[in-house]
Nucleic acid binder design. Sequence first.
DNA 1: AAAGCCAAGCTGGTCAGACCAATTTGGACT
DNA 2: AGTCCAAATTGGTCTGACCAGCTTGGCTTT
Lengths: 248, 248
Amino acid sequence: MLHDPPSKPERSFEIVARRIAAMIQASYRIGQRLPAERDLAKTFGVSRPTVREAILSLAMAGMLKVRSNSGVYVISRQEAPDVHKLEGFGPFENLEARQLIEPQIAAIAAQRGTEATFAQLAEALAMMRWEHAQGREADTSDHRFHVVLAEATGNGALVSICDSLWRAQTESGIWQEIHNHMRMEDYRPMWLRDHEAIFAAVQARNPRKASSAMTRHLNNIRDALMVASKAKSMAATKLPKNSPRKIR
Amino acid sequence: MLHDPPSKPERSFEIVARRIAAMIQASYRIGQRLPAERDLAKTFGVSRPTVREAILSLAMAGMLKVRSNSGVYVISRQEAPDVHKLEGFGPFENLEARQLIEPQIAAIAAQRGTEATFAQLAEALAMMRWEHAQGREADTSDHRFHVVLAEATGNGALVSICDSLWRAQTESGIWQEIHNHMRMEDYRPMWLRDHEAIFAAVQARNPRKASSAMTRHLNNIRDALMVASKAKSMAATKLPKNSPRKIR
DNA sequence: AAAGCCAAGCTGGTCAGACCAATTTGGACT
DNA sequence: AGTCCAAATTGGTCTGACCAGCTTGGCTTT
């Protein structure tokens, strides 16, 4: 009851999309037509609108092609960015990998970044401030900031890795648990300052500063994570239940 | 703009999506909430499912963020340029990522490696020599060598990344093509020397030497790749006749 | 018998209305 | 003034229906 599903309220079309993707990878060839929407709906036990949303998402991911009044066809057997499946590692392992890679990404971004890059980074920062002002976690903007930085390298492999690591970290149950046991408000100014420093260094086209700013940021995350991890284990031993929940 | 007026039955959600995007760029700020789906449907004179599909497409494009039971929020004023439709990246992008990561993996392996690590690396090297003696490509042993090195870091995330990058590289069609256009025999002694140097540095627990040995190795791969890539493109343009075509 | 033609049926595209669950909000109560 | 609860709001999903273009199979015509 306490620990059953703090789970992800996943939209059902996402589940259906994954099942369709799996079905295709298992037994469909390129160019082949999928069953009709109505049949898929019956197969998966959902309504047609849900199936339509799943198909649309896969079409946008470049996996399917919808031809009106004809059918849905497979145009690629691999779903876009699931190249790296990083699951089952602790947040500390994940963080170490980020510490290895992201400072260098920041350095390259400082060299190769364009005005468009800076604009997108500034956008992410603006959104982060807004989310913080709302008293909300800035997960979306944080994700976007790091991915945009990776995109600035022009290297799709690095984008994919950075994206995977970020997702794996925030989706880890431990990470979520920890967020419940610490006052994130105390850290938000630091997160914001970290990102602003990275942005400034990148925009100034200073690779070394960008790299060290990113290193500092990730070190701060690691420190916070260690504090929280310790607090959590202590709380687990001393507080059986009824710990004051933060609003999420 | 869209020079296809006659027979382009555009799906209505695409029209709605464009209108929403225009609306946002005209008068919305980041973080701001959009009107409710029902209101948008009324505004644009379409049904709610159509609005939902439009919102979903913009969400997948990284422009909007949907929060259940709360609303739809602007996270970027511009549509993210084909982030999700990476058609797979070239071998050079892949190699650059490896150049960023693997030297550091080697350095960490030199610090944390155990006797078991050294034994497995030596095994991989022995296999490599044997495969070369057989006149075969040493892909299996090469793969194993790099993965074992990553495993020596004790970080599962790094193992996964290293493994993914290696697979993506060798599985890329371009990589395979190139192998057909160059005499790999000429390079094998170099590959072997490279790996032996890495192994020696790791076993000597010298992180700096391990890192630079790995860098040298990857630089050699890059050079060979460039030579082969050039040779291939020249062969394609200048030698229509008598080029040893592979049967496809 | 072969060629062409047309209607019935699939299939995606869209619409309308309804209910649910989670979030938000505002007022009532303490 | 602070707390707490219930109603309103909002996205999530379902049902069932109708439309328009493509497909197919049978039928007519040559």
